[in-house]
Amino acid sequence: MSVRAFRYLFAALALGVPAAAQGVHTFTINAGQSNFVWTGDTSTGPLEGDPSNTFHLEGYQNVSLGFGSSGLSDAGFISGDAAVVPDIHAKIPNPISWLPDLADIDITNMHLSFSSVTDFPVNGSGNYTASVVVTVLSGTMIVDPLVGSTIVEDMAGTVSNPNDASGTLVISGTNANLHVPVDNTTTFDDSGSGMSGWIRLQGDIVAQASCSGGVTTYCYSFPNTSGGTADLMTSGSTSVSANDLTLMAGPMPNQWGIFYYGPGMVNGGGGAVFGEGVRCVGGSPHRLPPRLASFSILSYTLDLANPPSVAGTITPGSSWNFQAWFRDPPGGSSGFNLSNAATIDFCF
């Protein structure tokens, strides 16, 4: 039996396992729930676990998440590192029970990486189908046949053909949950050895990612003609999928103003005098549409699905700095003032 035939056999361990483009998030594989059973048969004889035909995956998978107006819309499996635990031990028993096995096969230190051929849509219920390619990052196969020499094969670099995998990817609060049920049968036919057969994998990949959003104010503001200093506040959540965050600033005069945001801070968050106030937000600014303050409060509800520019797209896991600018003609020669600022960390 050739090493090529055995390589076909155990490359199938990668072929059937689905993987895990937008903001990239690391999903931790739940080792206790990502359990697999393999079965197989060959023209030489049936494959049996020695002593077990079970394994689980542990490690991580990187997944990109894309969001539209109604929440999670698409995703992509990128790289990762999933270890096959424990090592795989198999045998082809001798049909004559009292004779040694026809072959013993051991695969040690197998690590897999998964990627989707393209990004794939995720529907409102979290269901998706992805075309997945699996790459063996590491793994050593040792074949000890009854007749012939022991063969040692480095499996690193083995790449599967694309294989469709259907599962769920659901956002729940600050958690993202990935579930892929796997039931895959791969056939092989090695002309070099004349060996043919099949191997079937059944199991589940379960993985989770989490993020924690939040709002942290910084910098300061000078008094305006309302009699106070404008403070930046928020209502709603920092969840991109909920898309319900409202910015507020006040007190201020009932004049026109805007909220704007950027990636940096001025002077490390200390700010710099600008007009009658302090400019706190640094980097290229993204300006939101103007609003007229009412009852001394300026407010604006963000629409994260329609950013003011592509560069200003807000994704889960990103952090942005926000500030309000407003007209205040009686307040000084510049005729405008600003609120303090806030760093907002966005979540799923």
Rank of each mutant, 00 (worst) to 15 (best):
D183S: 00
D183W: 02
N184R: 04
N184E: 08
T187E: 06
F188K: 08
F188S: 08
D189T: 07
D189Y: 10
S191T: 08
S193V: 03
G194D: 04
M195A: 09
I199Q: 12
I199C: 13
I199S: 14
Q202I: 08
Q202T: 04
D204T: 04
D204S: 06
D204Y: 14
A207W: 08
A207Y: 10
Q208R: 13
A209N: 07
A209T: 08
S212E: 04
S212G: 01
S212W: 00
G213S: 04
G214M: 11
V215S: 01
T216E: 15
T217R: 11
F222R: 10
N224M: 15
N224T: 15
T225K: 04
S226I: 03
S226P: 00
G227A: 05
T229H: 05
D231Y: 06
D231S: 11
L232N: 07
M233K: 07
S235E: 06
G236L: 08
G236W: 00
S237N: 03
T238P: 00
V240L: 02
V240P: 02
L245K: 05
T246A: 01
T246C: 01
A249L: 10
M252P: 02
W256A: 09
I258D: 11
F259P: 06
Y260T: 02
Y261H: 09
G262Q: 06
G262F: 12
P263A: 07
P263R: 10
P263H: 06
G264E: 12
M265P: 13
N267I: 01
N267A: 14
G269C: 00
G269E: 02
G270Y: 13
G271C: 03
A272L: 11
G277K: 13
R279V: 13
R279F: 13
V281Y: 07
V281T: 12
S284V: 15
P285A: 07
H286R: 03
R287K: 13
P290L: 05
P290Q: 11
L292A: 06
L292R: 12
S294H: 08
S294K: 07
I297K: 14
